[in-house]
């Protein structure tokens, strides 16, 4: 994924987890992920980027159940540890070289993430210095001040 998203061209792909460092280490070893994670157990970055929590309906409703079953049927491997908070939402952001957010996607539920092509295009536009690539994904609420 990192290669496809342009890390070879100087783009840094930084996955962020709110798990503890020990939990992340367990997963990195289990899945043999070759890249470093940002560990944010206090969720300060999550809050700064306006990432809230899903409703129980969004997290456990029919769409989420079907999506989870589909992933399991496709053979998704399960990692070694479980976190209690399954309602925390994720998100995807592109920052330019100066730290300005040029793309933001804050999905309203756990079963919605931007397509790979949207992220790749946002990175390309940002690398070219073209702002305003945020139109590709759901924005959600603005970040906390």
């Amino acid at each position: 994924m990192r290669d496809h998203l342009g890390e070879r061209e100087g783009v840094t792909v930084l996955p962020v987890s709110f798990a503890t460092a020990a939990q992340v280490d367990d997963h990195v070893r289990f899945f043999q992920w070759p890249f470093p994670f940002a560990v944010d157990p206090e969720r300060a970055l999550y809050r700064a980027f306006g990432l809230g929590r899903a409703s129980a309906w969004r997290a456990f409703g029919p769409k989420a159940v079907v999506n989870d079953l589909w992933l399991r049927l496709r053979g998704r491997a399960m990692g070694p540890s479980r976190q209690a908070d399954v309602l925390q939402l994720g998100g995807d952001f592109v920052l330019d070289a100066g730290g300005v957010v040029t793309y933001a996607c804050r999905p309203p539920g756990p079963d919605a993430r931007p397509p790979f092509t949207a992220l790749r295009e946002a990175l390309r536009r940002t690398a070219r210095g073209a702002p305003g690539s945020a139109a590709g994904g759901p924005q959600g609420p603005p970040p906390a001040a």
Binding site: V16, A19, Q83, V86, F93, V94
Partner: peptide
């Protein structure tokens, strides 16, 4: 350099 931040949900 440009950065892609990918905020994960829970690890599973």
């Amino acid at each position: 350099a440009p950065v892609l931040l990918v905020f994960l949900r829970h690890l599973a």
